[in-house]
């Protein structure tokens, strides 16, 4: 908090952006496969948004993190290449190679959606479907790795929890879904035919249902994360105090992450989705409401990384 964090804003942004991008690509790929994978599959539009958006935050995040390296700050601008000269079992090394793979596969997957670009090898649809199968495990791998990266160290008791990687995965999927919802919401719907509008609302319904379900599991994971830390003794118990009421980051965590990022958007989505889920009513939500909900989810995803990265560093035996 006093400007001496070893991992500051670039790392926080990187963990958030890589997670969101991986989430968007994963959601896109699974939607494509769920809709049959055809050119006019049921959720083709969602898949397209996710596929085109996914790689962008990942690449931005990866570029950002290079600036946080001590070697870059000391003027050795190409030193980071050393990361690519070895592969070992350090979570960071595993993650680096995962990211290299995912950046390539997700970019290729996005490329198959650029209709104006020529396909040099093979059939566009076949590639798309094959890459979707590849991108689901890759995306999940990248999203989990961001949590494993932090969780691998006994010296940082706040991070050293198996729930953290799960929490980051869920947050990545949820903010990836929100990114797709947000991007869709920018397209005007007033001039469209009735049929088209129905299709749009249908895919909005699918996205919101999925997102509310993920948010539900995320709330449970946060509860488990807090509970197990609170009920243990020693370093972990001391560390969790920082986000419990009275802690330094408690306000940001409870209001920012839990209330704005999870509870409010989750309940709003449930409110709009439940009539359709229970009584097969039509789902129709204005795009401004969708924008608001999606922005809240994305903000919550960022704040989660922010609180976790800082809390981990100001607590524990080492402190800042």
């Amino acid at each position: 908090m006093d400007g001496h964090l070893f991992w500051g804003m670039p790392v926080i942004l990187y963990l958030f952006l890589a997670g969101m991008g991986a989430g968007a690509t994963t959601v896109s790929a699974s939607m494509l496969l769920r809709g049959g994978g055809g050119a006019r599959g049921a959720h083709h539009e969602i898949a397209r948004y996710g596929a085109l958006l996914g790689p962008i935050p990942v690449i931005v995040g990866v570029v950002l993190i290079v600036f946080e390296l001590g070697s870059w700050q000391a003027g050795h601008y190409l030193r980071f290449i050393n990361l690519f000269l070895v592969a070992n079992l350090s979570p960071m090394s595993v993650g680096t190679w995962l990211l290299v793979g995912f950046t390539l596969t997700s970019a290729m997957y996005g490329y198959t959606y650029l209709k104006f670009m020529p396909m040099y090898f093979g059939d566009r649809l076949k590639w798309r479907r094959a890459l979707a199968w590849v991108n689901i495990p890759m995306g999940i791998g990248v999203a989990i790795y961001t949590g494993v990266l932090l969780g691998a160290m006994p010296s940082r008791p706040f991070w050293n929890s198996p729930v953290l990687a799960l929490l980051f995965l869920l947050s990545a999927l949820s903010s990836g879904t929100a990114l797709i919802i947000l991007a869709r919401a920018f397209i005007r719907r007033s001039g469209l035919s009735e049929e088209k509008r129905e299709e749009i609302h249908k895919s909005g319904y699918v996205l919101s249902t999925a997102d509310s379900a993920i948010i539900g599991i995320e709330v449970i994971s946060i509860f488990l994360f807090l509970m197990f830390a609170y009920l243990t003794v020693g370093d972990v118990r001391y560390a969790i105090d920082v986000i419990l009421p009275g802690g330094e980051l408690a306000t940001l965590f409870w209001i920012g992450v839990v209330l704005i990022g999870l509870v409010i958007p989750g309940l709003l989505e449930l409110y709009f989705v439940l009539p359709g889920l229970l009584y097969q009513r039509k789902y129709e939500v204005s795009r401004y409401t969708e924008m608001l909900i999606a922005s809240a989810v994305i903000l919550g995803g960022f704040l989660l990384r922010y609180v976790v990265v800082i809390a981990g560093q100001i607590t524990g035996p080492v402190g800042v």
Partner: peptide, 16 residues
Amino acid sequence: DICIGCKYCVQACPYD
């Protein structure tokens, strides 16, 4: 000459 300054080890050392 190899270290890139990622600070992962700084985080990992329980002795600061």
